[in-house]
């Protein structure tokens, strides 16, 4: 279970990103977090993987209070969560294969030992032909799919995707959503931050609406509209 309890986040420059936010997400759920730019969607994700600490309140992942974890415990939290970052966060000096296998290498596994697993997930996102390409040789959409493959390869308990279709051609948007849907059906909790009304309205899953740092709606089988 993921729980944001009375979370407020104010950045050093004074920006109030989240204000007294309470959210609970159960295992196996598919949740859209929607809202305009600057609503606090990305901050919420950063708090969950402790890329940021809350100004006040607590974040829980299963039994662990994320904001109170010791530095040594942090890697083990992050290994349970796969994240598709909005800016992809791919390593420029590594190929598609090496970028994806990195998520397993940080566990101490060698890329040669995980070849089959990595090739399978790259095939799943439709990039088998580009497996030896470097990020600069890929389009924005292809980079997005590498980021998805990397987030999936270690079978995380939770998959978080921050604007996963923002840079993707319309034709590929639905194949990505299809992948996320299948991952969810296999039991993984999926959290998607988006401001794409089409996918939210079509999938009819739980929708949490954020606006200027406040939770403005939380509907089962919701839609994008506020």
């Amino acid at each position: 279970m993921i729980k944001f309890s009375d979370i407020t986040k104010r950045y050093p420059d004074g920006t109030l990103a989240l204000h007294q936010v309470d959210i609970e997400i159960n295992p196996g759920e598919f949740v859209f977090i929607v809202g305009p730019s600057g609503a606090g969607k990305t901050t919420l994700i950063k708090l969950l993987i402790r890329e940021e600490l809350p100004t006040s309140g607590s974040v829980f992942f299963e039994q662990q209070e994320v904001n109170k974890l010791r530095a040594k415990e942090l890697p083990f939290l992050r290994r349970q969560i796969g994240v598709v970052f909005q800016d992809f966060k791919l390593l420029a000096m590594r190929t598609v294969f090496e970028n994806v296998s990195l998520a397993l290498e940080v566990f101490g596994k060698r890329s040669e030992d995980v070849k089959e697993m990595v090739e399978k997930v790259i095939g799943m996102v439709g990039l088998s032909q580009k497996i030896h390409s470097f990020p600069y040789q890929l389009s924005g959409g292809e980079k997005q799919r590498v980021s998805i493959a990397r987030a999936l390869v270690h079978n995380p308990k939770v998959l978080i995707a921050d604007e996963p279709t923002a840079e993707v051609d319309p034709g590929l948007t639905w194949s990505i959503i299809d992948i996320l849907n299948k991952i969810n059906l296999a039991g993984t909790t999926v959290i998607v931050a988006t401001h794409d009304p089409d996918i939210v309205n079509t999938l009819k899953r739980r929708v949490i609406g954020l606006d200027t740092g406040h939770v403005v709606k939380d509907n089962r089988e919701g839609s994008y509209e506020f």
Binding site: E51, K72, R78, R79, L90, A103, V106, R150
Partner: peptide
């Protein structure tokens, strides 16, 4: 530094 930051986000330990 960017690579190190990404590795940390993916769950790399300090020793790694």
């Amino acid at each position: 530094s960017e690579e190190i930051e990404i590795m940390k986000l993916l769950g790399a330990t300090d020793d790694y």
